[in-house]
Structure formats: C-alpha cells, structure tokens
Design a protein around this nucleic acid. Structure first.
Lengths: 230, 230
DNA sequence: GCCGATCATTAGTCTCCTCTAACTACCGGT
DNA sequence: ACCGGTAGTTAGAGGAGACTAATGATCGGC
C-alpha cells in the first residue's frame, strides 16, 4: 500500500478485506438497508463466518458497533474511514468511465480492485484531472473533505405515478447484468423517462424512453432513483 | 483479482509477492545482473528467507530454475508470466506519466501497487488510449504480444568519451532519489548531453546539459544508458 | 409450548506471506 | 589445515484471511 491514508490510526491493517467491509457497511447503511452478517457475506462474496470474524475485529478496533439483534453500525471513526474508501471507489469509477470509456456496468468491479492500491497522492491527481467531479457514473455522490455526504435518494422509479415524467438521478450498481440491461435501454443518470402505466398486482411498470416503450419488473425499477417532474 | 491473466495456468496464486518476484528476476536477468537471493531480498524489501521460500515455490511450479551456485533463472514459462507483469508495470508507468502527470520518480512505486489490481481488459483500454506506446517514461520497452523484447541497453553514460555527445535512451528506475536528481538536471530519455571531461581515478564525469555543466559520480552515470553520437 | 427454519457464531483447519534466529556451505587468507 | 566472513537455507512462529462443519439463538407457525 503506497501513501498514507488520512485515517491510518487504528490497530488494523488497511487490507482490501477490511476496506471492502467498511465500504459495504457504509453504503448499505446509507441506503437504510439492514447490515446483517449474511447480507454482508453475500455482498462481499465470502462466507458468513468470515464476516463474523471481520466484524469482531472491526468492533475491537472501535470502527463498528453491534446494534440490537446482530446488526452492524459504523462508529464516527469507522464512518470516517469508510467515507475515505467510498471516495476512492467512486472517484475511480468516474475516472474509469470518463477517461478510459469503461462501460457503466464494469466500472464497479474494476474500481473495487484498484481502490486498495491507489495512493492518496495519485487519487488527488485523478480528482484534479477530472475537475473535482461531484458524482460517479451511477449518480452517487463522491464524498469530499469533511462535508456532509448527500445521501438523498429521491424516489424509486416504481413510485412514480402513471402519466408522470421521471428524471433519473441514481442507479444502484450492485448487479452488473441488470445494469447492462438498463444501459441498453438508455436508462442512466440524467435521462428523462415517461411513465406510461402500471400493471396491477405487482406487474411490470411501463415506461417510454424516447419513442420506445419497455416493461420493467420490480427488481429493475428498485435500482432506479430520481425525481417525478410532471 | 479481476479478469483472467493470459497465463493463469500454474498452481500458484497470482499474488503481488509472486508477481513482484517474477518481475524483478526478469528485469535483473535482462540487465545481466546476478539474480541472487540477497539481491532479490534487497530489491523486494523482504528478508532473505522470504525470498528463499518464494524461489522454492516458483521452482516447484516450474517457473524458475536454480543455476550454478544459488542463482535463479526463469524458465520459458516463467519468463512468459514475468513478461506479462513487466508489460502491466511499464504500461501503467506510461499511463500515469502521460495522462496524469505523475512525476518520473514516482511512477515506479505507483505502478508497483497498481499492476496487481489491473484487469487485462482495463490494461488493453489503457494501451489503446495511449496509442500503443512502445516505451515507458524511463525509456524501457513495453513488451507486446509475443514479439521479442528489445533489451538493447546501448552504452552506459560513463563509457562515453570526453568531447562526445550522448543521446540518453534509458534511465534505470530503481532509486527514486537519484532519479529525481537526474530529472532536476534535465537528464531523461530523449535528451542530448555533451560529455566535457572526466576526472581520473574514478572521479566524476563532467557533462553539459544546455549551457549548464554538472559533475556526475559513478552511481549516477551507471543509471544512464544511450548512444554516443559524435 | 414445541418444532423447524433461519441466522450468527464458534471450532478447527488451511494457505500465504512474513519475520527472527540458528544452522550450513563455501571461499579466501594465513 | 584452519578460521572467519558471507550467502543461503532451515526451523519455528505469527498474523491475516479464507473455508467447512457444528453449535447456539431467535422467531414464526401450529
């Protein structure tokens, strides 16, 4: 690991396992999703015992608290570390997409591997090179300095009423295949969608992008956040 | 590790320890420098026993041969792997220098950290983005495809006769401080130097860059390779 | 109030990478 | 022939990170 991390203070190695865990806890908490052992194991592609041990280490290092049940929540200290990791991750995503044309659905995985190897100095060069961008390709805010992180998720696409227009602001980036599908449809941050209708009983949402109409199931609409404009 | 390495075939994890060892053995062998346990330990910043164990693993995996004494030499298979690592390293150096303006003496350390995290796909994007460069910022050739690697080192600066001109082609990049010093003097690949004289008994070499004259000791002149032109 | 499902943790093991300390093998000088 | 220094290896240890298998805890349904 090159360069000094701003928060290299606690008795923990800044390995990818530690950093990835912090990042996922941070992001899930920001989305108000439950941060359980099994959910983390799923997101981090490791077994539940591996997560259990890691959470214990993070707790011992004062980065994490166990809340009611067995859920995890970051301490202020832990959140500061995690913010730094998220910043590296999202800035790299922006760089890969804008500078190298890496497709939308690939940037997450590439950034995941690179984020642990980039020095602070290099990251700042990237930041300057991009002109201090505020959002990554999925519309997620890139934390900067000590300012608050805008975690306003707007509304989910499936909450938009039939007949309304919807401005896409953020698209959740966990599932690469779904992301690729949405990209093929032309759904990405900055695009306006016309919500034409909805089938009853959990049926698909009908949307029009440009002149073409598509039916989207819930697993897809749940990924898309933004604002109803009309 | 994202993406498949071309040569992901032997029973070894492609970790940074393994890859770094292969790269250093490859480069030292290319410079006809002895590849001894202690030399590797020094270059890799680990202890001699660590190297000893790693060499044993690489030998068991068929990537390495032990030659007379205890020296190490890559097998064809090992050299192919090492070439791939060197390619990643030098291409990243070129990218960091050209695209992000990372100073000459810093690119090596940054590339060292990144080279293990870059996927083949991303590396190819970088390659295309740079227009398939042939040399890294130190003048070292970037291996490509299966073509032979140009390891022509020309002559060392200290071999240039007094009164001659010398075109710098390559500057060895191990010692960052020395590199920074040479950069400050304006000595880098592509520059022409006038060799004005040499003190006897191993004294410094006098060179003129532009209008300024400098005295360079052997530790510095040994890093600079190129051609005598007049 | 019990039963089964789900979830988290503990227990035990493995590999990789690193270290220090001790030992061995070789080589040159006397 | 011996003695000392240098280089390489072996021995022993430990931390990080991962796994499977087994155990404990919790909660809903009947």
């Amino acid at each position: 690991m090159i360069g000094d991390r701003v928060l290299d203070c606690c008795a923990l190695p800044h390995t990818s396992a530690v950093e990835d865990t912090l990042r996922v806890v941070f992001v899930r908490a920001g989305r108000s999703e439950p941060v359980s052992t099994s959910a983390l194991a799923d997101a981090l592609h490791v077994s539940a015992p591996t997560v259990s041990i890691m959470l214990k280490r993070l707790t011992a290092a004062g980065l994490l608290r166990r809340t009611d049940g067995h859920l995890a929540a970051l301490t202020d200290h832990g959140a500061a570390h995690a913010r730094d990791v998220v910043r590296r991750h999202r800035l790299l995503e922006a760089f890969l997409a804008q500078e190298l044309g890496v497709p939308w659905d690939e940037v997450h995985a590439e950034a995941d591997a690179l984020e642990h190897a980039v020095s602070d100095r290099l990251l700042d060069r990237i930041d300057r090179h991009l002109g201090r961008p505020e959002r990554d390709p999925h519309g997620d805010p890139i934390p900067r300095g000590t300012g608050g992180l805008d975690e306003d998720w707007g509304v989910r696409l499936d909450a938009a009423p039939a007949g309304s227009a919807f401005d896409v602001e953020r698209v959740y980036d966990r599932d690469s295949a779904a992301l690729r599908y949405l990209a093929d449809l032309g759904i990405h941050p900055g695009v306006r969608i016309d919500v034409t209708g909805r089938q009853p009983f959990g049926g698909p949402l009908w949307v029009r992008i440009g002149t073409i109409e598509h039916a989207l199931g819930d697993p897809l609409t749940h990924l898309v956040h933004g604002r109803v404009v009309a």
